[in-house]
């Protein structure tokens, strides 16, 4: 990548706080784009020196290879508790955020995230909703859609035996300790920019000590969904966004 190209200068390549690591993700996986969004937010807020990431277990657990901030690896589902420990260890200073997938946060760690919010933590959580377990090969997750075929719902997920897709952004918005809850996606530049705005707002709730900040990214999992990347974008737009509408569900500056 040359600095100069026929007399033109670089407008954009990557955020300052992002490493240029070769990608560990499957082709078309948007996890690395989410890491890029968060790094851009960190750059623009100037918090790279104060940010400490806590990653759960799952594909999102590899995002740290792109992120030039201190990182701690938590156990599956336990990132909110580990993040709380870090925040207290830093005397409630620092910007502590968690990266968690739908298996990590909505399955094994559901109690942990709700308890962290109920405890009044001012953490920030970036939630990766790709409707399945990617790392382990595409099993059903709490966010898997009705009828969606996965390796553990071979006939398609049905409510009678597999229950219902869980809506985390709405659930978080209903909790008093949450100051900001939004659901975003990464389809087109407009989406990207509003996702970054959401992440910055969520971080700001922590900086201003208002309450918990939660941003749910609806993102693709081509191999998990059994589609090639272009099809997974279409399926995301058609099926996922229908089940998981985008938008800001809660944004308050004071919590009584």
């Amino acid at each position: 990548m040359s600095e100069q190209k026929a007399g033109k200068k670089v407008i954009y390549h990557k955020p300052e706080s992002a490493f240029e690591t070769s990608s560990l993700f499957c082709a078309g996986c948007q996890h690395s784009i989410i890491a890029r969004v968060v790094c851009e937010a960190i750059d623009e807020m100037g918090i790279q020196g104060d940010a400490v990431g806590v990653s759960g277990v799952g594909c999102h657990g590899m995002c740290h290879v792109y992120m030039d901030v201190d990182f701690v690896f938590a156990l599956h589902g336990r990132a909110p508790g580990t993040a709380t420990g870090i925040k207290r260890g830093l005397s409630n200073k620092g910007i502590v955020f968690t990266f968690q997938g739908d298996g990590d946060l909505a399955a094994i760690g559901l109690g942990d995230i709700l308890s962290a919010v109920n405890r009044g933590e001012k953490l920030t959580t970036i939630f990766f909703n790709n409707a399945g377990y990617g790392t382990t090969g595409g099993q059903m997750a709490p966010t898997t859609l009705q009828g969606q075929v996965t390796t553990t719902s071979p006939e398609g997920r049905d409510a009678a035996s597999h229950g219902y897709p869980v809506h985390m952004a709405e659930m978080m918005a209903s909790m008093r300790g949450v100051a900001y809850s939004a659901r975003v996606a990464l389809i087109g530049l407009k989406n990207f920019m509003s996702a970054k705005k959401a992440v910055k707002t969520a971080f700001q709730k922590q900086i201003d000590n208002v309450g918990y900040g939660f941003v749910e990214f609806v993102c693709t999992c081509p191999p998990g969904w059994g589609m090639n990347p272009p099809k997974s974008i279409q399926w995301l737009e058609k099926a996922m966004l229908e089940e998981y509408p985008l938008g800001e569900l809660k944004n308050v500056d004071i919590i009584e």
């Binding site: 407008i11 954009y12 996890h31 890029r36």
Partner: peptide, 13 residues
Amino acid sequence: ARLCPDFAITVYG
């Protein structure tokens, strides 16, 4: 460039 998952694109202006 922003939506490339592999940081493969640089934009010049």
